[in-house]
Design a binder for these strands. Structure first.
Length: 274
DNA sequence: AGCACTGTTTACAT
DNA sequence: TATGTAAACAGTGC
């Protein structure tokens, strides 16, 4: 489900809902979601904590607590649903937070890939997973020069695979990486080390543009993603290649093709991307 | 019915 | 070390 634009959309919706609220109960219905602590220990540490703010780092959601952070990753299908009152859990509800004002926050996840973990302030950025991330894509220190140097040292790695690696570039997933490479005119199988500085800059610029536009449109709803209000995003309406197999390329009119690369479905125009 | 596919990450093998 | 593959899980579509 979520790449950076979807996670940002979720954070923007959750921030006004949970900020300032104190946790009075936590129900763990499936312990698989909880990482780092035993579920009862994890629950005990959360009771009485007040959520100060909701932040985002890459595709991670950070609930800033009175003491430390609750770090959550939605992986493929995780969803947070805010409710004004107590609501019965449904089939794939795995964690329920109750606040002192009676409102609740449900975590639902059909595939149970998502995670939640408590971190101290000291450990947050210097331990995995956040310690493994590259800078935020909008950080001015993310330059074509730095990316180019990094890619030149790669042996055979395809540019698409490199861009999906969150330790190299943050925020792209399978939808937005295909869109980025189409817009930049770069073939997904090109070895990353063969890109010129100018091509790397084109990729960087298009990645930022795609992510920015997708945030403005509330993300992409392809299969199951919705925001915490249950609403769909609209960026899927503007996709050029992802899910457009067989459709005419908007530049040259020839059919968009799909191949398998690094285990991921990969959409591209064989004529416009070189 | 059975298999391939799905927006992510990481553990493990090579 | 770097890269590729399988696995975590459930649902959907062919």
């Amino acid at each position: 489900m979520p790449e950076l634009p979807e996670v940002e959309t979720v954070c923007r919706r959750l921030r006004p809902f949970v900020s300032g609220k104190t946790i009075t109960a936590v129900d763990v219905l499936d312990a698989k979601i909880i990482r780092g602590h035993e579920p009862d220990i994890w629950t005990q540490q959360l009771l009485g904590e007040t959520i100060q703010d909701v932040e985002r780092r890459g595709k991670f959601i950070l609930f800033k607590l009175t003491n430390g952070y609750l770090v959550s990753h939605l992986r493929m299908e995780g969803k947070f649903y805010p409710h004004g009152e107590t609501v019965s859990p449904v089939k794939h509800t795995h964690v329920v937070f109750t606040f002192s004002d009676g409102s609740t926050l449900h975590y639902n996840d059909v595939r149970k890939f998502g995670t939640m973990e408590l971190k101290t302030n000291e450990a947050l950025y210097v331990t995995p997973p956040l310690s493994l991330l590259a800078l935020e894509p909008f950080d001015p220190n993310v330059t074509a020069e730095a990316l180019h140097e990094r890619m030149k040292r790669m042996n055979v790695r395809a540019i698409k695979t490199a861009l999906l690696d969150q330790s190299i570039f943050v925020g792209l997933g399978n939808i937005y990486v295909d869109e980025t490479l189409f817009r930049a005119g770069i073939h997904p199988t090109r070895p990353a080390a063969t890109l010129s500085l100018e091509e790397v800059e084109a990729v960087r610029q298009e990645a930022v543009a795609v992510l920015t536009e997708a945030i403005e449109r509330g993300g992409s709803t392809i299969r199951s993603y919705t925001n915490p209000d249950g609403a769909a995003g609209t960026f899927q309406e503007t996709l050029y290649v992802y899910g457009q197999t067989g459709e005419p390329c908007r530049n040259c009119g020839r059919p968009i093709e799909k191949m398998k690369l690094g285990g991921r479905g990969t959409h591209y125009c064989p004529h416009c991307q070189t």
